[in-house]
Computed example of a mutant assay.
Amino acid sequence: MIVDTHLHLIDRRALRYPWLTGAPALNRDFSHADYAVEARRAGIETAMHMEVDVDPADIEAETAYVKALASDRESLVSGAIVSCRPELASFPAYLERVRADPFVKGFRRVLHVVPDDVSEGALFRENIRKIGGSGLTFDLCVQPHQIPKAIALADLAPDVRFVLDHCGVPDIRGKADHPWRAHVAEIARRPNVIAKISGIVAYADPSSWTVATLRPYVEHVIASFGWDRVVWGSDWPVCTLGGGLSTWVAATHALLEGCSEDERSRLLSANARRFWNL
């Protein structure tokens, strides 16, 4: 069975998503009900919701919304990675509120949608260090050329557990290896960073990718981080841009052909349960 560590739900009636106006293929509602039918058929038994970069005024409302969905006995959602703004002076108070809620498992601030110097600010870095000891993780969503910015954060906050989203977002469609390959190998040297094998079908040519297309990228990430520091995520509904949830699950199983049952189990579920106490 699979633990999905990267599920997005979109409900435009409940929350505001400014970025959706620039993403017409995703500018509609994506409900838990729609996800759950396909997820169960694909062998997904539980999921963590990943924040969807809502309007900043809706950040805590998004957490409350997802938590309410998770309270349903039939829900697959067992935790949430919530949005945050470490660049603001209000972050420490927000951190304390979040720490009191066991449903919240970590934070994410999407860094490729803001200027690079945001993560280099003194207040941002001070606030990231405050996460240390809380048991909460911080997801790093960056482009390949920004991975050194992520490395700097990991070095500055060795007590914080970081998660590199989407294999470091390689340009699979463009068949680009540089600087992604070297940067992934370098960030993997930090023991406080794990990698998420999540939704990379969205970065491949939707009309022509095959398992062979994805294999060099997935194998490099696993070889760099090792089987104990990788987890799996769907990145639904973004993965629909490259074939959809069932296609990505099927590709994952094909990519793991030849691996031991223990290695497969660690990637698909055991590591996630251990990292986030699911």
Rank of each mutant, 00 (worst) to 15 (best):
H112N: 08
F103H: 08
F103M: 09
V82T: 02
E126C: 04
T137A: 14
S75K: 12
E186I: 06
D159G: 11
S119L: 09
C84A: 00
A64L: 15
Y94D: 06
V184G: 01
I59L: 01
C167E: 04
R73Q: 14
P102S: 11
K67D: 12
A154Q: 10
E120S: 13
P86M: 03
H166E: 09
D55M: 09
V184R: 01
I59R: 09
F91N: 05
F107C: 04
E96G: 02
P115W: 09
P115D: 14
F162W: 10
D155K: 10
P179R: 10
R161A: 07
D117E: 14
P179H: 06
A154W: 14
F162S: 10
R85T: 05
I172R: 10
W180Y: 12
A154R: 10
D58P: 09
D101S: 03
V114R: 15
D116F: 00
K149S: 14
L136P: 01
V77W: 10
F107M: 08
H112L: 05
H166N: 13
S75W: 00
L136I: 03
L95G: 12
A150C: 11
S134P: 05
V142N: 02
K105P: 10
V163K: 12
S90L: 07
S83Q: 00
Y94W: 11
L140A: 01
F138P: 05
A93D: 15
L164T: 09
I172V: 15
I172N: 03
L111E: 06
F103Y: 11
E74K: 12
D58E: 10
A157G: 06
R97T: 01
I147H: 13
K149R: 13
R109M: 02
V163W: 11
V82I: 11
A89D: 13
S134D: 08
R173L: 12
C167L: 15
P115G: 11
S78Y: 09
V110E: 00
D177L: 04
K105N: 14
A61W: 03
A93P: 07
R181C: 07
L76T: 05
I147Q: 10
V169W: 09
R173C: 05
F162C: 02
V118M: 12
D72R: 15
P102G: 08
E126D: 15
I131Y: 15
C167G: 00
P170G: 02
P115I: 12
E186H: 14
P144G: 02
S119C: 14
C84N: 03
A176H: 05
V114W: 06
Q146R: 15
V82S: 02
I147S: 09
P148L: 14
E186F: 04
L156R: 03
I172W: 07
E96W: 00
D55T: 01
W180L: 00
C141W: 03
T63K: 04
V98S: 03
A122P: 14
E120K: 14
I59V: 05
R108Q: 02
V169Q: 14
C84S: 05
A100P: 02
A64V: 13
G135K: 08
G174I: 00
R125H: 06
E62G: 06
L164Q: 13
V118G: 05
A182N: 04
L95N: 02
S78C: 13
C84K: 00
E96F: 02
A70Q: 08
P148S: 15
D116E: 12
K130A: 15
P158V: 04
V82R: 00
V77R: 02
F91T: 00
A61C: 11
L140G: 02
F162D: 08
R85N: 07
